[in-house]
Design a protein around this nucleic acid. Structure first.
Lengths: 236, 236
DNA sequence: ATTTTATGTGTCATAATGACAAATACTAAC
DNA sequence: GTTAGTATTTGTCATTATGACACATAAAAT
């Protein structure tokens, strides 16, 4: 038994993959290997398979490109303009993923000619992928203003200046060190290590790591690391 | 030209339609008119048509049931378990809508045997519609804690006790009148009317209406009408 | 005139926030 | 060995936001 007189169409999954290299946000893009728009830059994607859920497909696609599993990923939005893919009608379900750029850099499958682009210097993308990226950036800014989601971009050990740079960069603002540190440490989500990162200063900055249980407990809590009046970019 | 060797499937749209009758949150459900699960309660839905976007489909479906247009509606999530519809593989894109329950005219279209159910006393729904409703409730609680979205449920004129009841009911908490009023009025999104609602007290409560321009300006702003520690239900 | 009932309003103590500058640890240069 | 240089680290104070708390008021009903 089937539903009669209804149209069946393709379902694509596209992944917006974020990284942070210490000073800039990056997006992982690939060079499309087939027509149309061959060799143009694109999000990593694929088609939904018969026995697969969307979450399953997104994870499959992310793993194919990066070799990684158990990555932070959430469904973003489903795009559906009738002519968004000139070949054939396709709706695209987008996911956005946050990965530790160090961890994944060497595992990238280069079949796809993947490349990390600075989030602020992206090439033109195929179809409606520019629009997808804009929505993902907007969602990231929104969510990061309220939840400690940016921690997903960090390596196991990181410093407070590193963390602060991540927030300053995302909201294009300067934050007072003392106030920022106070707020971050008051959550008790960070554990101070004994060693320092000496790469960026002579004095060196202490490493910290995430207290995973505190992090998970407080993930839903509405935080406020950024001064409220410095959040003009927060909207969705 | 087509993509070869890929599976094409049905795309459904399902709408979670919220209302507030002055004391309780309601969901508008219909009795499914065809097999399988005929006569079981269900969300209002339909299939995506060839030349239609998802937003277009959602609005079409909402209008067919309620007669209403220009309603607050946003895409919620796309559901995709391979066997979620026993007839045939279908992915379902859900939308949630907030409407002024007074504007809904049942006589407009009773082909669907629609009925408003209390949000806390819902019948069992077909397929994965229970899960959809749970996600919508969760999203509503989350978003309403941060943005003045519940105003979309209100009639043109409403009272402060009416507004407060909406928040108290959603978060199952009591809020101090004085503190609530202070916070709400400090946004300047409300305009006091000269007349009163006499239906719920002898003294009567002044009507207010929304200042649309202030409302639009501040919609993205992160608000805090509910005491933070009273928001255990806020998560997404 | 009195009672009744929901509405409308003000104060205070505490917590959170933003603004602000000096000392420190280490390296490198002399 | 001393000094200079640079990013890191840390504390105070004034202002604002918040939560806790109780009584007067308007209008209808008796």
């Amino acid at each position: 038994m089937k539903y009669s007189n209804q149209t069946r169409i393709l379902t694509a999954i596209d992944c917006i993959i974020f990284g942070f290299d210490g000073s800039d946000y990056k997006l992982l893009l690939i060079q499309r290997g087939f027509a149309p728009e061959k060799e143009k830059w694109s999000l990593m994607g694929g088609f939904l398979q018969p026995k697969e859920s969307l979450d399953g497909a997104a994870n499959r696609i992310l793993k194919k490109l990066t070799g990684l599993e158990d990555v932070y990923m959430e469904q973003l939005h489903t795009f559906s303009k009738p002519d968004r893919d000139p070949v054939e009608r396709t709706i695209a379900v987008t996911y956005f993923a946050l990965i530790d750029i160090q961890k994944y850099q060497k595992q990238i499958n280069d079949d796809f000619h993947a490349h990390w682009f600075s989030m602020n210097e992206l090439p033109d993308l195929i179809f409606d992928h520019n629009e997808m990226v804009e929505m993902a950036k907007s969602r990231l800014r929104y969510k990061a203003a309220l939840h400690p989601i940016l921690f997903e971009l960090l390596p196991k050990k990181f410093t407070l200046p590193h963390l602060q740079a991540m927030y300053e960069n995302l909201y294009e603002t300067k934050i007072d060190k003392r106030n920022f540190t106070r707020k971050v440490l008051s959550t008790h989500m960070l554990i101070k290590e004994k060693d320092k990162d000496k790469t960026s200063s002579k004095k060196g900055a202490f490493f910290y790591r995430i207290d995973r249980s505190k992090y998970n407990d407080q993930f839903q809590t509405v935080l406020n690391f950024i001064p409220r009046n410095e959040m003009p970019g927060v909207n969705e």
